[in-house]
Design a protein around this nucleic acid. Structure first.
Lengths: 228, 228
DNA sequence: TACCCACTGTGTTGACCATCACAAGAATGA
DNA sequence: TCATTCTTGTGATGGTCAACACAGTGGGTA
């Protein structure tokens, strides 16, 4: 039962009415994913969605040559795989656990039945998907308008929003282990150049590393890079 | 009343139940846009959506320096501006008529009331937005994996899908006036390079121009460029 | 403790593409 | 009809960033 509670919180976090979240959670089946385990790959038929209870997952599109473009890194409280469930098409991206994770699975049939009875769920999913689309457009805009440093700044600040812990003096600790390779995947760049950029920032005191985690020392300065 | 008919078709095109489309169309108010008229700009509060009855509109994000990244070119039967209506945030892109156009406007309040009474509308919007998101992710993937020629091929074929007229011998006429600048905006490149690419294709017989319209002579060959 | 393996830092080289520059052609409208 | 403006073609040049090549680092574990 404690799982159901977390699940409820997960969906409630995203703004869904508590009663409905509870109703949905009754339909869910918990699953555990080990590190690097793949939840589904692009092309799979999509007949379910997942709420993340614990851990984190990455959503990526993988090219023929094997390089990957990350679309999102998701943590507890997020929902993943909802698209295929909503429009009935195949999965358009690959989702993989980046650490040991717990998810709760809801099958399309159950979801449809429940939502038809409770249209507020539809409204909730609509605003969720809208926001995803918004974010996707932002990323695309960043990709076309910003040079690499700007894009890395965007990515880092985004991670800060998702996984950030406030520290004194306006510093922000990104409490999540990101490798340079992951960052590179997010911004669509070569890992080496991300390394170079992070180091110049480190030298300039914009960021630092605290036991493996990146810490944004001057969020304002980083944010300025987004605009130029 | 004839306007309502067209409107009904518009939404029905996208797969909505005819009765519901009619119901929605009763809520709509027709508007005419002249060439280059701006429907709304990014940042505006979004309290309505529009169905396109006639003409075509472009959806774009515009950078501080004034260059634009096109997100979509839409024609009759398409719906635009639905995102802001669904999640209540401000407009995230700018929409502008590229020729004289007719649109039908539905206000958020009316839409909400109607959809609450007819949840099927929600399902329909969900699949619509999902597909947009899917497309956005595809574009982003193309942007990171494909070199310029591949991206131009993708854009051209996409226009072919939206505005294409089949000709004998598997040829496809893109019955819509695209400037090289528009194409460049879609693929996020400099206009000059798009010009160069189109010309090599013209020389190789992949495409041709028929009185100002591009004609895809060998769709298969163009499609091959998408994968490499 | 020592080994291993994944992650990180940095130099070098070259491809791709943006930018500038400008000429020629097409379209719009006064 | 002419002039003005928008579109297209093509060269030259340089900047950004990917690709390759390794050396250094650190955390886990046998």
């Amino acid at each position: 039962m404690h799982g159901a509670n977390i699940f409820t919180e997960s969906l409630a976090l995203a703004g869904l009415d508590p009663d409905l979240a509870t109703g949905l959670s009754d339909l869910a089946r918990e699953m555990t994913l080990s590190t690097n385990e793949v939840l589904f790959v692009a092309g799979d038929p999509g007949d379910s969605m997942y709420a993340i209870l614990e851990g984190s997952l990455k959503v990526a599109v993988i090219s023929a040559e094997g390089s990957e473009q990350l679309l999102a890194i998701l943590g507890p409280g997020h929902v993943v795989g909802e698209m295929a469930l909503l429009d009935g098409e195949a999965r358009s991206a690959t989702v993989q656990a980046i650490k040991k994770s717990q998810v709760a699975r809801i099958d399309k049939a159950d979801f449809d039945r429940f939502s038809d009875a409770n249209p507020a769920v539809y409204r909730h999913m609509l605003s969720l998907v809208s926001q995803r689309l918004r974010q996707a457009n932002d990323v695309l805009a960043a990709r076309s308008f910003l040079p690499l440093p700007g894009r890395v700044a965007v990515a880092l600040l985004q991670l800060g929003e998702t996984f950030g812990k406030e520290l004194p003096d306006d510093r922000l600790l990104v409490h999540y282990k990101v490798s340079q390779a992951d960052l590179a995947g997010m911004v669509g760049a070569a890992r080496e150049n991300v390394s170079r950029i992070l180091n110049t920032w480190k030298r300039d005191g914009l960021i630092s590393r605290i036991s493996g985690y990146y810490c944004i020392e001057k969020p304002a300065e980083l944010a300025r890079l987004k605009a130029m």
